[in-house]
Lab assay of single mutants.
Amino acid sequence: MAAAAAAGAGPEMVRGQVFDVGPRYTNLSYIGEGAYGMVCSAYDNVNKVRVAIKKISPFEHQTYCQRTLREIKILLRFRHENIIGINDIIRAPTIEQMKDVYIVQDLMETDLYKLLKTQHLSNDHICYFLYQILRGLKYIHSANVLHRDLKPSNLLLNTTCDLKICDFGLARVADPDHDHTGFLTEYVATRWYRAPEIMLNSKGYTKSIDIWSVGCILAEMLSNRPIFPGKHYLDQLNHILGILGSPSQEDLNCIINLKARNYLLSLPHKNKVPWNRLFPNADSKALDLLDKMLTFNPHKRIEVEQALAHPYLEQYYDPSDEPIAEAPFKFDMELDDLPKEKLKELIFEETARFQPGYRS
């Protein structure tokens, strides 16, 4: 834990890192770190609560700039109880001085990944967590956004079992017609939660990839272990087919990539493993919904509104309290091709509203 900075004593240090967030945020305490930044909790002297502050230093890398800009653009436009918001952003007053960006968010005690390492969940908890994931996802999908990296560590939890989806750095506007060349190379989302079509096709992607990830998360809540822990690309596919069985001819016809289709045709026939054999203690309604989410063919996979209306979630289902976005989200430009200098300018502009004396 960093010592509390005395008023006016300059930035606090946390594990050798400068955290320049005073005077409003003090009493910093280390939480963890990701690929390009550290997260601390801090005391907000204005709202009198502890908050989470993520320090991001992305400006050396085009990919990190892209992810940072995506996350900020999306989260500043989203407003939903099951999606983490941005409360404040701290950065230098000029673009030349801006080396880091500090993002202030609600402090959540833990995440689903940490929880599943230590606790076996009751059916009631599984049901409530799944409902909140789908409630947040309904809003995301209504904005025409794909999260693309749903996994237990991106689901934040607090002691009252509130759940918030975080990390929109890989999110995209849904565009089933656009052929994202190089899709697989830039697709760094965790393999275990990846839909089979991501490994088999490169053309376009749809909201059904997020539903697949939610199915993987439900299976993990039922058993405290990942359902498809593939060691590499082909191993991942083999794990999936080992449980779902061989795809039907109709399902194979959806695979545009001939090499991928021929690979699947070359494999020995596998039978589907019954879900109640894998999860003998699970609620039968939970397994019915799991089956509809972990469907090989993305066109037959359940959609988020149908999933919310499934009998497993009937005690929570309330369409009048499951809000959607006001308007579909649009990125003005494809960020993939922009140089990091341009992305830095866009991050600077996007964060201006939090600067003292800002006038829109």
Rank of each mutant, 00 (worst) to 15 (best):
S320K: 10
E326Y: 14
W275G: 03
L69I: 08
I83N: 05
P11R: 04
M221E: 03
T295S: 00
H178F: 08
D332Q: 10
R24S: 00
D332F: 14
V188I: 01
G204D: 13
L156D: 02
M293E: 06
G169S: 04
V173S: 03
N201K: 00
S29D: 12
K330T: 12
V104L: 06
Q315P: 13
L170E: 06
F279Q: 09
R194I: 00
N297Y: 00
L155H: 06
K270D: 10
E197C: 07
N262R: 11
H178L: 00
I227V: 08
D175V: 01
L155Y: 06
E81W: 13
S360F: 09
A4D: 09
K292H: 12
K330Y: 15
Q315H: 03
S266A: 13
S142Y: 15
C127S: 00
I86K: 10
F329R: 11
A282I: 15
E350A: 15
Y43T: 14
F78R: 07
Q119C: 12
L252Q: 01
F59M: 14
G230P: 09
T181C: 07
V49F: 14
Y187P: 08
A286G: 14
F59K: 12
I209D: 03
I243N: 05
G8W: 13
N271E: 06
F329E: 09
G182Q: 07
N257E: 05
G16T: 13
V21N: 07
Y139H: 11
F129Q: 07
D100I: 15
K54T: 03
A3D: 04
K138L: 07
C216K: 02
S57N: 13
M98P: 10
I90V: 11
E197N: 03
P247D: 08
I240N: 02
S142E: 12
R301I: 00
H310E: 12
P176Y: 05
A307W: 09
L155C: 11
L294W: 07
Q119R: 08
H80Q: 01
N154A: 03
M108C: 12
P268V: 12
R15I: 09
E96Q: 14
T181N: 07
A92G: 15
V145F: 04
P280E: 07
P247F: 11
I217T: 09
S284W: 11
C254W: 09
L343W: 14
N82F: 15
I227Q: 12
Q105M: 14
D88E: 01
K300D: 09
K203N: 01
L137P: 01
L115T: 14
I140W: 02
C127K: 08
L107F: 09
N238G: 11
R67A: 14
L155V: 14
F168M: 07
V104Q: 06
K300M: 00
A286N: 15
M38G: 05
K340A: 09
R301P: 03
N297I: 00
A9I: 13
S266K: 15
V273W: 14
N224A: 13
K300W: 09
S153T: 12
G230T: 14
C40S: 01
H232N: 05
I53P: 12
K55Y: 07
P247M: 09
R135S: 02
H178N: 01
E345V: 01
A5F: 15
I243G: 07
G16A: 09
R301K: 00
D167W: 09
D44V: 06
G8S: 09
M108D: 02
V39N: 05
G32C: 00
L343S: 09
K99R: 06
S122I: 05
V214L: 04
I56Y: 05
Q249G: 11
W212H: 01
K207S: 03
N158D: 05
R67M: 00
T160N: 12
L294H: 06
G8K: 07
K48A: 08
R67H: 15
D337E: 00
Y43K: 14
S246E: 13
L134K: 04
H310W: 07
R135Y: 15
A260V: 08
P247Y: 07
G169C: 00
N82D: 08
N27H: 08
S29E: 09
R79K: 04
T185F: 03
H125T: 05
L267M: 00
L155F: 05
K231G: 04
T206Q: 03
K344C: 14
S41C: 06
Y131A: 14
N297W: 08
L157Y: 06
L267I: 15
V49C: 12
L28V: 12
D235K: 04
I227W: 03
P196F: 04
L107G: 06
T63P: 03
T63F: 06
L218K: 03
T118F: 12
R15P: 04
L156A: 02
A174C: 11
I89H: 14
N257K: 02
R148G: 01
V145P: 05
Y131I: 12
I72K: 06
K330N: 04
P311K: 11
F168N: 07
H239I: 05
I198F: 00
Q17K: 05
G215C: 03
Y317T: 12
I90L: 14
K259V: 06
K73Q: 03
K272Q: 06
K292C: 10
D337L: 10
A282N: 15
H120Y: 07
S202K: 06
V49H: 11
D283P: 14
N224F: 07
I53V: 03
I211M: 07
D20S: 09
S246F: 13
G10V: 00
D149L: 02
H310Q: 03
K117I: 13
K292F: 07
I74V: 02
Y187N: 00
D318F: 14
Q355P: 15
S360C: 09
K207L: 04
S57P: 15
E305Y: 14
E341S: 12
I209S: 02
F279P: 09
I324F: 01
D44G: 10
T63Q: 10
I217V: 11
G85V: 01
C216R: 02
K340S: 13
D337N: 01
I256Y: 11
F354S: 04
R172H: 10
E33F: 13
H299W: 10
E250F: 14
D44S: 12
I256A: 09
D149T: 07
P23W: 15
T206G: 10
I209H: 02
V188N: 05
D210T: 03
L308A: 13
V145Q: 06
K54W: 05
D210C: 04
K344G: 05
T118A: 06
P152D: 04
N87Y: 00
N224W: 08
E109S: 12
E305L: 13
Y131T: 15
A143Q: 07
D235L: 01
I140Y: 08
I95Q: 11
D175I: 12
N154C: 03
Y316P: 15
P274A: 07
S208A: 02
A307F: 11
S213Y: 03
L237P: 02
L157P: 03
D88I: 15
A286C: 15
L156C: 07
I243S: 03
P339M: 04
Y25A: 10
T190S: 00
F296Y: 01
L130P: 01
G8L: 06
L287R: 08
V18K: 09
Y316M: 11
Q236V: 04
G34E: 01
N201T: 08
Q315G: 14
S213F: 04
E322V: 04
Q62G: 08
L313F: 12
E303V: 03
G230R: 09
V101K: 03
L115C: 12
R353K: 03
M98W: 14
D44N: 01
I103D: 06
Y113V: 07
H299N: 00
S142D: 15
I302T: 11
G34C: 05
I324H: 15
P176N: 08
A195W: 04
S246C: 01
S57Q: 14
P298C: 11
L146T: 08
P274C: 10
P311N: 14
D177A: 00
H180Q: 01
I256V: 07
R353Y: 08
L287D: 04
H269F: 14
N123L: 09
P323W: 15
T94R: 06
L241D: 06
G182E: 02
L265W: 14
L338T: 08
K300A: 11
N271H: 05
I140R: 02
V214A: 09
F331E: 08
F129Y: 01
Y36I: 05
G245T: 08
I56G: 06
C127N: 11
I302V: 06
D291R: 06
S29W: 12
V51I: 06
L338F: 14
K330A: 13
Q119G: 08
L287T: 12
D283W: 15
Y131E: 12
Q105V: 13
I302E: 04
P319C: 11
N257Q: 06
H310F: 12
